[in-house]
Design a binder for these strands. Structure first.
Lengths: 181, 181
DNA sequence: ACGTCGCACTTGAAGCGTCAAGCATGAGTG
DNA sequence: CACTCATGCTTGACGCTTCAAGTGCGACGT
């Protein structure tokens, strides 16, 4: 099309890196999904949603914000929250301040689910990603990831979002069920 | 469960890396799929299958080998090859040497499809991954990727597989339609 | 006040991947 | 040669994601 002549094929070094990257792209999500599905019966995306809610002081978030931080479409989120609602972990209410928004709220059971699931998930992330890397590689990974993300979507403000592996509720408020059991 | 006390939560540095990684995990496949779907009407996995076949001298491979190099389950491959067969890019024959195997064969049209799709795909990979990285980072990425892959699946012999961004048919044989148009 | 518009969200249908059978071929064993 | 077994692949049902409407609420203009 607009590639006049022989395109710039990958060098051997680039091909090795590409193969390594694509393998991670396929296997790491599968491994993370597998661990969560086996140990907690939820998908990685469902976990991200629950964990995202668990990290706000009120355990509440607008659907659109929740879609942002969990990196999924609004439609996908809506379906997933439907399932989570049926399982009793989340409930929805129209935003009293503005009826166009919908607030997703983590229930007590949902909170317990996150608390009992988080340690195993963090352990899996450590096992797959951080334990095999040196401290220098961890920094390199961050820089490489940011550059790639920026190349895909230059307007991505990925720097100030919370990842879903933080301790739930880092800033506790005086609600009764802070720790389960 | 077997996590007695407070688990080893991620440090700030690790969390930054984790967020960067997970963003790449979600956005890069979407970006690659998007480019191929827009420009060629095929998914990344379908491209990997076609490209895998295009790189063997006979443009032929056993289904199980093809599943290996394209990193998908045999079942998934079977469904995908069904679709590719309906589109006229691949055909299947029982292996004459051993009827249990099935050979997937790239047709002339399939070959043309790869040839016209490859340059744009390589260009996209360059744009998303290699252009924004330094040469040192490209090496770092390879090492990091291999370590993570090894942690997930220690028995993975990912080093001697061909990636799907190589030039099609690096070792040409005397078939008529080597270059389309 | 009323109509129009935009935005947040939901819904239903279609497509794709996974899982658990099922089928066919060839190898091993008596 | 029969019988069994292992292997490679296929198939169909189910679940999840996507895409394209559709709904409901609030803002803005007149």
């Amino acid at each position: 099309m607009e590639h006049p002549q022989e395109p710039r094929w990958l060098t051997v070094e680039e091909m090795e890196s590409w193969l390594a990257l694509i393998t991670v792209l396929i296997k790491l999500p599968a491994a993370l999904d597998g661990q969560l599905l086996r140990d907690a019966g939820i998908s990685h995306f469902e976990y991200q949603v629950l964990a995202g809610l668990s990290m706000t002081p009120e355990r509440t978030m607008r659907m659109s914000d929740l879609a942002m931080i969990s990196e999924g479409s609004l439609s996908r989120l809506s379906h997933v929250v439907n399932r989570l609602e049926k399982r009793g972990w989340v409930r929805r209410t129209p935003d009293p301040d503005d009826g166009r928004y919908t607030l997703a709220i983590l229930t007590g059971e949902g909170w317990e689910k996150v608390v009992e699931t988080a340690p195993g998930h963090v352990e899996a992330v450590r096992g797959f990603v951080f334990d095999p890397l040196t401290k220098a590689q961890i920094r390199q990974l961050r820089d490489i990831g940011r550059r790639i993300t920026h190349a895909i979507d230059p307007g991505d403000s990925c720097l100030e979002r919370h990842p879903a592996t933080a301790r739930p509720e880092p800033d506790p408020d005086p609600t009764p069920n802070r720790e389960p059991s």
